[in-house]
Design a protein around this nucleic acid. Structure first.
Length: 324
DNA sequence: CTGGCTCAACGATATAATGA
DNA sequence: TCATTATATCGTTGAGCCAG
């Protein structure tokens, strides 16, 4: 855990609620040979009783696998990658390439057969507290030239609609034709909502949203909510807005309003800076915004508060880090 | 069969655009 | 100048595919 991201503060893992950070040092021992329970997969690694390796060097994606590892006290890092993690990843990849005289990492990632790139992911995952599937995800997105192209122009949108008709859900073909990555066009289609209102919410819409949330979450006013709430259904009841719009509107405004939140003031700005500088956190991404939000009536939601911080920062100077 | 990915779905986040 | 809204991309979940 030490190695990269949080040298001095292993206790400050970001915001995992499901995977407790507390057991990271003590609870990592795998029960070695005694595996009596329905052991599936992963078994290959579990014979050597060292723990970290099992997690960061194994592919595991099913619920059973994850539960199994967690019940054995394993933890792994989640959430946004920090800059140092990304740097290390890049360095590992460069080294891997250099050792084999490969110039372009994308060759390995997108062209080689699995056999040819045997152990690629395991090798470059060294030193990272992340499972292989997480590393894989990051790498394929990071090195995809067709990713990060930016906003869609109206012409592209038009073309996209046509391509959608001819290719259906063949995102790879659509992406190729459009010069975008498959995941980009897929996301775009998912999120493009032509039949929704945009701009300012009408009072009526807000009322419908509030009603829908109460109804679907079976929630009394004042109760905290929304795990397991289907925003798709909410959006359906609201009628005029997408689920994404509904969700952010609720999280960043209506919920706060309902619990009697107070306006944000200059005082709060100061308060925020104070609390942040109190925090003793290495990395900005280690800040626990959920916790920071607790009992702060003018903080509308963790993500909202975070936004506050960004805009505050932008006023000072360019992108410096740390809570200072 | 199984290791090594690959895919789909979807909420979360970061940042840009817009509006009052 | 804010605050609010829009949107491209990221991260997590959970399965599924397929060559060897």
């Amino acid at each position: 855990m030490l190695a990269i991201s949080a040298p001095s503060s292993a206790d400050l893992l970001t915001d995992e609620e499901t995977i407790s950070a507390t057991s990271s040092e003590t609870g990592t021992l795998l029960k070695g040979g005694t595996g009596k329970s329905p052991e599936r997969k992963i078994s290959k690694q579990s014979k050597n009783s060292c723990s970290k390796e099992d997690v960061t060097q194994a592919w595991f994606t099913t619920r059973d696998d994850k539960n199994n590892l967690q019940s054995h006290g394993h933890t792994w890092k989640q959430g946004q990658w920090t800059k140092s993690e990304v740097d290390l990843l890049k360095k590992n990849i460069e080294e891997y390439c250099a050792e084999r005289g490969i110039e372009d990492a994308t060759e390995i990632i997108f062209q080689m057969s699995k056999d040819e790139r045997k152990d690629f992911y395991r090798t470059i995952a060294k030193g990272l507290e992340r499972p292989l599937f997480s590393v894989y995800r990051r790498v394929t997105r990071m090195y995809d030239q067709k990713n990060h192209v930016g906003r869609y122009s109206p012409e592209e949108m038009e073309k996209l609609r046509d391509l959608r008709v001819t290719f259906g859900n063949d995102w790879i073909s659509i992406g190729t034709a459009l010069g975008r990555s498959a995941s980009s066009v897929k996301d775009k289609c998912r999120l493009m909502k032509d039949k929704c209102n945009s701009g300012k919410w009408l009072l009526e819409e807000e009322k419908r949203l509030t009603a829908a949330v109460h109804d679907l979450a079976k929630k009394k006013p004042g109760e905290q909510v929304t795990s397991g709430l289907s925003w798709a259904l909410v959006a359906e009841q609201v009628g005029s807005r997408s689920e994404k719009q509904c969700r952010t509107k609720w999280l960043n405004y209506l919920n706060w309003k309902e619990v009697g939140g107070t306006e944000w003031t200059r005082q709060d700005d100061v308060q925020l800076i104070l609390r942040l500088s109190d925090l003793d956190v290495e990395n900005e991404s280690d800040i626990d915004w959920n916790e920071l939000c607790q009992g702060w009536p003018s903080a509308r939601s963790p993500q909202w508060l975070r936004g506050k911080w960004w805009s505050l920062k932008r006023h000072i100077n360019n992108y410096q880090n740390l809570s200072f």
